[in-house]
Amino acid sequence: MTKKAMEVVQAARDEKHISGHELRKVLFPDFFELHGDGLSGDDPAIVGGLATFHGQPVTIITTSRGHSLNERIEKHFGQPEPSGYRKACRLVENAAKFHRTVFLFVDTAGAYPGKSAEENGQGEAIAQNLLRIGQAKTPIITIIYGEGGSGGALALACGDGVWMLEDSIYSVLSPEGFASILWKDAKKAAEAAEVMRLTPKDLLQQKVIEGIIDEPADHLQVCQNIEQVLQTELDKLQNLSAEELLVRRYERFRKF
């Protein structure tokens, strides 16, 4: 039975949903964290580093919401600061230097809308990711495993392919925000969710994403499904030259 759009939104935000921490633990047991943006800070809402995937070195970047309340406050509930986006950009460019594939895992309501974030150039940080990650000469695959909120998600999903778990969303803003801006009534969120076409099925139809990953209740099985997609995509993209990769990436967004 098909879920209503708002049910998908709720499932994507559910506490029991798979976490970035879990994904790293299961899929990349040898994960070695690399902290910091190399400029001004180390945003805990973005966790990135090195790992191997079926024997191959890869770069992993995940958004992180945290577990304890303190962690969550520190991580702004998984909403990155500019230094988080700059960290991701640094790690992607470093991966490109060594021809390492990049896997990004995204679950964020959006970029952190705080005072310090504004002062530190939140807009500029996202823009530079679009500009520079977009040109990084190495395969870049993004998995959305919860919320894909606006420019804050796009900044981590501007590579060669985006796949989504069944219970996840990707949208220009939250359905609550959409309803309150366009209809002056945040309570119309369910209606907004339908209109916005933010479910994986809708997004696949609009060719915004490459595919949907089955999401059974068992998290280990979910990880296996993700692993399979990553391997298939990797095989496909690794055969392309850097030039072919960038042409393909340009076309991927040019069609919109």
């Binding site: 040109q135 420019g151 501007c158 220009v172 915004v208 990436r249 340009y250 967004f253 040019r254």
Partner: peptide, 26 residues
């Protein structure tokens, strides 16, 4: 900002234009 009435396709423009900016710069 983004034009809400056009949903996700509005968001995609940010990446589309950025890629064209990058080529112009190169």
């Amino acid at each position: 900002g983004a034009r809400m009435q056009e949903g996700i396709l509005s968001l995609m423009q940010m990446a589309k234009v950025s890629n064209a900016v990058a080529k112009h710069s190169q």
